[in-house]
Amino acid sequence: MTGKSLADYQKEYERIIFFDQPRKDILLEGLQTEMEKQFKLPMRSKEWKKENQKIIAMYRKIVITRTL
């Protein structure tokens, strides 16, 4: 099974942002975790971040949207 595309994550994000805050945070946390696993996001690799700017931008957007 192949993972979701970045566009799939964007669509999921756009669906989630209309939920009430507690539910939205829970769903966004799940989306974050899913991205971390699928894309093997290294938190401290400048090289990886430079090569995967769109993935990092989507991930950061999710982080910023969360209130927790």
Rank of each mutant, 00 (worst) to 15 (best):
A57P: 05
Q53M: 14
Q53A: 14
Q10W: 07
R23G: 01
L28S: 09
D20F: 11
Q21Y: 06
G30C: 07
K61G: 00
G3Y: 14
Q32F: 15
G30S: 09
Q32L: 13
Y59K: 12
Q10V: 08
N52M: 01
K50H: 05
T33F: 01
T2D: 06
F39M: 04
L31I: 15
Q21N: 10
R23I: 01
K40W: 09
Q32S: 14
L28N: 07
Q10C: 07
I26A: 06
F18G: 05
N52D: 00
L31Q: 13
Q10I: 10
I16P: 04
E12Q: 06
E51S: 08
Q38S: 05
Y9R: 15
I56E: 01
E47W: 00
K46F: 02
D20T: 07
S45D: 11
A57W: 09
E36M: 08
K37P: 00
F19Q: 05
K11F: 06
P42Q: 14
F19C: 01
D25C: 10
F39C: 02
Q38N: 06
K24P: 06
Q38M: 03
P22D: 13
L28K: 05
I56L: 03
I56T: 02
M58N: 07
A57V: 05
M43A: 03
R66P: 09
K4P: 01
E47C: 04
V63P: 01
M43F: 00
Q10G: 05
K37Y: 12
L28A: 09
L68V: 07
A7L: 14
A57E: 04
R66S: 12
A7K: 12
K46A: 03
Y59Q: 12
T2E: 12
V63C: 02
I64S: 12
K40G: 10
I26P: 00
P42E: 07
K61L: 08
K46G: 00
R60M: 08
R60C: 11
K11Y: 02
E47L: 03
I26K: 10
T65D: 15
E14M: 13
L31M: 14
E47H: 05
E36W: 06
P22T: 11
K24R: 13
T65K: 15
K61S: 03
F39T: 03
T2I: 06
M1E: 12
Q38K: 00
K61W: 06
E34Y: 01
M1L: 14
L31W: 14
I64Y: 09
A7P: 05
Q10H: 12
K50F: 03
K49Q: 12
D8I: 04
K37V: 10
S5L: 14
I16R: 08
E34Q: 08
L68D: 02
L6S: 15
Y59W: 15
T33L: 03
L68N: 10
K40Q: 14
R15N: 12
T67W: 00
G30N: 10
K11D: 09
D8T: 04
